[in-house]
């Protein structure tokens, strides 16, 4: 079984560095809207809650995909094959954590790939709110 990103919500101070570094690692820009994880904020309480892909076994996104574009590899990593993705959005609706992302320009789903084994969100989290284990 592959390692997963674990969230310790109580340690999150809401800095957004996970979002920024996620996108930078993939696209070399700083665009929080393109992150492969989310931070849900309740600003009046200064609450920030990261939501990350759990690389589910028997993943709902995978099961919902009519094109069989989503697969789980032998390490347990759930991936989207963009060449097969038709952009129907069924996976986005199916994800219980809201972390299947959608590129409305390319009309393709995209998701967390654990940065090939060293998640950038985890390594840049200043408080240990994200762990990889």
């Amino acid at each position: 079984m592959t390692k997963k990103i674990i969230v310790k919500e109580e340690a999150c101070i809401g800095c957004s560095l996970c979002l920024l570094n996620c996108v930078f690692n993939h696209e070399k820009i700083y665009a929080v809207g393109r992150a492969r994880l989310r931070v849900i904020r309740e600003d009046t309480l200064c609450l920030a809650r990261p939501l990350v892909c759990r690389q589910c076994e028997n993943a709902p996104c995978m099961n919902a995909c009519p094109e069989e574009a989503i697969a789980c590899d032998e390490d347990g990593l759930v991936t989207v094959d963009e060449s097969l993705c038709s952009g129907c959005g069924a996976c986005v609706e199916a994800c219980p954590y809201g972390v299947m992302m959608f590129d409305s320009v390319e009309n393709k789903a995209f998701k967390c790939d654990l940065c090939g084994g060293e998640p950038s969100c985890v390594s840049h989290c200043p408080t240990g709110a994200l762990e990889f284990k």
Binding site: E10, I13, G14, C15, S16, L17, L20, L45, C46, L47, P126, T127
Partner: peptide
Amino acid sequence: KRRVSCYSCIIGCHRFAGIDHGPYRGTC
């Protein structure tokens, strides 16, 4: 109640504080 950071801050010196007892209970 928790430490709070500004955008891209690794320090988090800002605070979120509240009162649980007494006349100002519920203030945060």
